[in-house]
Design a protein around this nucleic acid. Sequence first.
DNA 1: TCTTGACTTAGACAGAGTCCAATGTAGGAT
DNA 2: ATCCTACATTGGACTCTGTCTAAGTCAAGA
Lengths: 138, 138
Amino acid sequence: MSDLLERLRGRGWRLTAQRRVVAEVLDGDHVHYTADEVHAKAADLLPEISRATVYNTLGELVSLGEVLEVCTDGRAKRYDPNAHHAHQHLVCSRCGTIRDVHPAGDLVANLPSEERFGFQVSAVDVTFRGICPDCAAA
Amino acid sequence: MSDLLERLRGRGWRLTAQRRVVAEVLDGDHVHYTADEVHAKAADLLPEISRATVYNTLGELVSLGEVLEVCTDGRAKRYDPNAHHAHQHLVCSRCGTIRDVHPAGDLVANLPSEERFGFQVSAVDVTFRGICPDCAAA
DNA sequence: TCTTGACTTAGACAGAGTCCAATGTAGGAT
DNA sequence: ATCCTACATTGGACTCTGTCTAAGTCAAGA
């Protein structure tokens, strides 16, 4: 994720300790933390970091296209650092676990033009729902 | 929507004035109101209706499968009375307008089994995003 | 019409997120 | 190396969405 920090510095981002730890927390695959989870994990590394800064930083990362916002339920938004590989999400209806998945085909093409109501359709968010192996076993 | 009320009465629902006006507000196509919008419109018909009752009634309608909960952004949930015809949503990224749409094909089948991580996949929610004709013109 | 358990109400509360004025600091300028 | 200052951070108040509770009300069966 340090290449991310370099990229952002190149765009004029000031590199602060707070931004570093937020970026560090978001490193990894299948990471989908809420803002509060990011704050808790960041506070383990930098105890005095504030909630406001975590929200600010996440918002900036989203605006810059480096992180995706995901809402799979009506609760807190989740933040997905896997923004540079198009993907969708598979969510366990019981425990809420989220996996990144890669459906086949062109999903936007599934929408016939007579169903587009004159919209310029540019993107599609897909959430597959089901029961994960752990919940199915329990 | 009065067939809805009949159906619910058959299931033991007590028919109150409050439930009637909530059902009436939710009548129509491409209806996707937030709970507060439902409350405001219901209060036009029955001024003393409370927010709690609107939330209760919407929750019950969702549990009974008569209304769908939709969240297209991280904000308030929206309530969609078109629960008896499978459909997905098309959302304007600028103004938030929502249309019900009917994509072609079996959307769950788009997820290859090696991308299912052992989940039993049972449903899929799809949100197409784009710019609506009004916003494109403006 | 009476009765009763289901329904409604107002308001307190909780969770998620935003905003603001005061303070601190990264990094270019000197 | 130090200074400056525009940008970043902070804590706390605030907003919005939704839930809960205790007390009062009422639909509909007896």
